[in-house]
Simulated scan of single mutants.
Amino acid sequence: MRATIDGVLLADTDREHIILIEGSRYFPADSLTIGTLKVSPTPYVCPWKGQALYYSVETPHQEYIDAAWCYPHPKRSAIETVGHNFTGYVAFDTTRVVIE
Score class of each variant (00 low, 15 high):
1 M>Y: 11
3 A>G: 06
4 T>D: 06
8 V>G: 03
8 V>H: 08
10 L>C: 03
10 L>V: 01
10 L>M: 03
10 L>G: 02
11 A>C: 05
11 A>R: 14
13 T>C: 15
13 T>D: 01
14 D>H: 13
14 D>R: 15
15 R>H: 12
17 H>M: 03
17 H>W: 11
17 H>V: 00
18 I>Y: 06
18 I>P: 03
19 I>Y: 05
19 I>D: 11
20 L>R: 07
22 E>S: 09
23 G>K: 14
23 G>W: 11
24 S>L: 08
24 S>E: 11
25 R>E: 13
25 R>L: 04
25 R>F: 04
26 Y>F: 08
27 F>V: 02
28 P>H: 12
28 P>R: 09
30 D>T: 02
30 D>P: 00
30 D>W: 05
31 S>N: 12
31 S>D: 05
31 S>G: 06
32 L>D: 05
32 L>V: 12
33 T>I: 05
35 G>I: 13
36 T>F: 01
37 L>D: 01
37 L>Q: 06
38 K>W: 09
38 K>V: 14
38 K>D: 10
41 P>D: 15
41 P>Q: 14
42 T>A: 04
42 T>L: 00
42 T>P: 01
45 V>S: 11
45 V>L: 14
47 P>V: 14
48 W>H: 08
48 W>A: 04
48 W>D: 00
50 G>F: 15
50 G>P: 12
51 Q>I: 14
51 Q>A: 10
52 A>S: 14
52 A>V: 11
52 A>P: 10
53 L>P: 02
53 L>E: 13
55 Y>I: 07
55 Y>W: 12
55 Y>E: 10
59 T>Q: 06
60 P>R: 03
61 H>S: 10
62 Q>G: 00
62 Q>I: 07
64 Y>N: 01
71 Y>K: 02
73 H>N: 11
73 H>A: 14
73 H>R: 09
79 I>C: 06
79 I>S: 08
79 I>V: 14
80 E>F: 01
81 T>R: 14
81 T>C: 05
82 V>A: 14
85 N>H: 09
85 N>F: 08
86 F>D: 06
87 T>C: 02
90 V>A: 01
91 A>F: 02
91 A>P: 00
91 A>K: 03
92 F>K: 09
92 F>G: 03
94 T>K: 08
94 T>I: 08
96 R>C: 00
97 V>G: 04
